[in-house]
Amino acid sequence: MNLQDIITKLDLKTLSSVEKDLSSNKPACGYSSDLLSCVMAGAPKKSIWITLQAHGNIIAVATLLDLSAVIITEGAIPDETTIEKANEEGVVLLSTSLPTYAVVGQLWEMGLRTSDPDQPCS
């Protein structure tokens, strides 16, 4: 499963300008939380992070953790500075009007899991 499949399947909107081919971006696992400190502590490298936070700090977190992509749920739109920062840092920023629960549910159905079943990452 690659990021392009996910974008198509979930009908996600791409907020950041992406130059690279997203079908080569293969997320390792999924992670969800709206608490930045938890994400910092728990989201594994190359995971997709699902959150309804549209706060500017999410880009810093995504960059630090080298996440595969960030999906912002419930139609929350980050301000322009946040999107600009995402472009600068090469963070894939996606958006949907669906709530977190439904997005994760569909990703789960597509086969995306947490990093290690014994040590759930989120």
């Binding site: 977190t100 994760v104 549910g105 995306l112 947490t114 079943p117 989120s122």
Partner: peptide
């Protein structure tokens, strides 16, 4: 379980 696994 984490949030992701729970929702899933």
């Amino acid at each position: 379980l984490g949030m992701f696994a729970l929702c899933g």
